[in-house]
């Protein structure tokens, strides 16, 4: 099921094109990664989805119908640039922002107390925001984003400013939200976290979508036919036409080779030929990290210009 879809969205700011016919499909109850270098147009796309700005052309479909004003109450948005009222008491402003999202004051208070307890910041309820550490402020901001239990959540760089322990806590919360049936858009530069939690991604570069699809699929598609082979022999004996050795070395027990296989040979064919002459202890294809895919794709689009 497609939860949210943008069709040929174009946004022009005075003098530059921020989005150029951007079409993405965001599946329901999945975590969708919105990736791209700085200034690619991610924030503009998010602002169009949250109806902060309107697109010049194109449309946004929310559950297969045009996005309407009321839908914004069904969206929770955590902007990259965090901000809350510094001089206002934490609990007070959390209730205020929850009320703006349509919750009655009493419900807002009840839910907030539960979340504050869960994140271990309940004792800070009556403190001014500026008295909190940065990590605690981030927690408050996260709670405010999810408090009205919207169906769609948008997190822009949610892990920035968190220590590893709290980042893990947050990651688990995000995964739990997905399990509870929420659709999540996750914008980040941190490719390791994309591999860990995203189901699908879209990579935006220079105002255009340059890559999209399932994360595993994309990583498979970007395989470079590189294998890591462990053997007991000092030399790798096989038809030289099949591969090219990139690196070789020795670990405590075995000899290790990193080889690039020729594209026309299938994996099983390659392995069977190697097995004839070598004592293979392990054979593994390298799947590129999202980081590699990102750099490769962005460099490619820049080279094409």
């Amino acid at each position: 099921m497609i939860f949210l879809e943008t069709k040929d969205v174009v946004k022009q700011y005075s003098g530059h094109l921020a989005l150029d016919k951007v079409s993405v499909q965001i599946p329901g109850q999945k975590i969708f990664g919105l990736l791209g270098p700085n200034g690619a147009g991610k924030t503009t796309l998010i602002r169009i989805i949250t109806r902060i700005t309107a697109p010049d052309y194109g449309e946004v479909l929310f559950k297969n119908r045009p996005l309407a004003y009321e839908d914004i109450f069904n969206i929770g948005y955590l902007p990259e640039e965090r901000g809350l009222y510094k001089k206002m008491k934490v609990g007070e402003q959390a209730v205020y922002l929850a009320r703006l999202k349509g919750l009655p004051a009493s419900v807002a208070k009840e839910r907030l107390k539960k979340w504050f307890e869960k994140f271990d910041i309940l004792s800070w309820w009556d403190k001014k925001l500026e008295e909190l550490s940065k990590g605690m402020q981030q927690k408050v901001q996260f709670i405010i984003t999810v408090i009205h239990e919207p169906e769609l959540l948008i997190f822009d760089e949610p892990f920035s400013g968190f220590d590893p322990i709290n980042a893990e806590l947050l990651k688990n919360e995000i995964l739990q939200l997905k399990e509870r049936g929420k659709t999540i858009i996750f914008s980040t530069h941190n490719m390791a976290s994309v591999e860990e939690i995203c189901d699908e991604i879209a990579l935006i570069d220079k105002s255009k979508v340059v890559l999209n699809g399932n994360v595993n699929q994309i990583r498979n598609d970007h395989k470079q036919h590189i294998f890591k082979i462990h053997t007991e022999n000092e030399n790798l004996i096989a038809d030289e036409a099949l591969y090219e050795i990139l690196e070789q070395g020795k670990d405590s027990r075995n000899y290790v080779f990193r080889v690039k296989k020729c594209e026309h040979v299938s994996n099983s064919e390659f392995l069977s030929k190697l097995l004839k002459n070598n004592e293979i202890t392990s054979f593994e294809e390298e799947v590129p990290s999202m980081n590699d895919v990102f750099i490769q794709t962005v460099n490619q689009t820049q080279a094409n210009k």
Binding site: R51, I72, G83, L84, G102
Partner: peptide, 16 residues
């Protein structure tokens, strides 16, 4: 100015 510089305005205008 406070709301703009705090960037809280982005959170608020996504619901108001």
């Amino acid at each position: 100015m406070e709301e703009k510089n705090n960037r809280i305005v982005e959170v608020i205008v996504s619901s108001v």
